[in-house]
Design a protein around this nucleic acid. Structure first.
Lengths: 201, 201
DNA sequence: TTGACAATAGAACGACCGTTCGTATCTTTT
DNA sequence: AAAAGATACGAACGGTCGTTCTATTGTCAA
């Protein structure tokens, strides 16, 4: 890896951290450069524009999520076990010290959902992909015989996402110490109403 | 009402609308003044600081929510009917044309959850109050004999909020035409798992 | 109608923003 | 070691930001 690529990674890493607290538009090239001991223009040259930097942060976030949450979950046996591992990893992801302000993707989603541009497009695509992956995991769980066959998998994905959203909100804004418990309860209820009759005991 | 108060209201109304799209920090006093045909300093004088303007917008949002969602719900008979009306009004609130970018409070929550200051404090207090009101409505529903007596009301409130969050996300970022259907399904499932055994049929 | 005061305007401020450009310094290759 | 190319710097740009003044206009009661 060349020197430039190393610097670039250092920048994105720090930007990722900052964006977690201050949002993407809260990122400032000047401040970022100062924190990293770089010149404004030197940092700028790596991305060509603020928009470019923001996109890199979003891509980094998506990659890390895949690496830290999705991939590990697929080591668990297909079915409910995998869904549980996915959920657990997701909560851990939202508490990752590398994201001191919580999930970058959630923050950016709320920030950009009514804008137009590549950042929004990337986010929407990424999130749609996540929902599809969740739905697919639910479908696999049906095939494994652990979920009822008439379960609406997209509905399941929607609700699972909702639980994590509520968790984020309770944890970050309300600082509710019971946030994690609440999230786990909600997820267990979701699982309980999804299981196949012969497994409901 | 004095002339000044009228102007002030016009300003807050427009700021409310803009904050829905661009967030509180996205508000710009200069831009706001131009849109309203006022001078920057003239507008500024009404609030004394940007922070003051932001607080007024948040207060206006909380008041409107109470007026448009909470109060009407209390005309419905206590119990599940009232909860349904509350939920329905909440979805409508999130689609209020006066908030072209969706619920101002949700946007601000995500924006401010990791900051410090009066804005964050106000939001946290307001949202905690909302959760408490939801929990109380659930408790009333228990007393009306429609919810099971061992229902965790705070858990119910947490999950109801989560459904609305998921709806907002699906609607705003993903532009999912099924968002409302999904939300309604999720809420019905929440109700179904909360009802007293003798009402479950 | 006049006098007191509230309400608005206008100009200017320092600070920070993203961006551009020319120049220097490092890396990497030959 | 020298040439070529990648990296980084420093200064400056036009703009916008929130904020502060002073001056002017408008409102409203006596």
């Amino acid at each position: 890896m060349s020197k430039g690529d190393e610097t670039r990674e250092r920048i994105v890493e720090r930007a990722f951290r900052l964006a977690s607290r201050d949002g993407l538009s809260g990122l400032s090239i000047g401040k970022l450069a100062t924190e990293l001991g770089l010149s404004k223009s030197g940092l700028f040259a790596h991305f060509g524009s603020k928009e470019g930097l923001e996109l890199e942060v979003l891509k980094a976030a998506a990659e890390r999520f895949t690496e830290q949450v999705m991939k590990p979950a697929f080591t668990a046996p297909r079915g409910v076990a995998r869904l549980r591992k996915l959920f657990k990893g997701w909560l851990a992801w939202a508490n990752d010290p590398a994201q001191p302000g919580g999930c970058v993707i959630f923050a950016a989603s709320a920030e950009l959902d009514d804008t137009e541009g590549p950042q929004r497009d990337f986010l929407a695509t990424t999130q749609a992909g996540l929902l599809a992956a969740l739905a697919k995991s639910a479908r696999i769980t049906i095939e494994a015989g652990e979920f009822r066959r008439d379960l609406d998998c997209d509905q399941f994905a929607f609700e699972m996402l909702g639980v994590v959203y509520a968790y984020h909100h309770a944890r970050r804004l309300l600082r509710d110490p019971k946030a994690e418990l609440r999230a786990k309860n909600a997820f267990e209820r979701l699982l309980a109403t999804s299981v196949a009759p012969e497994n409901a005991n």
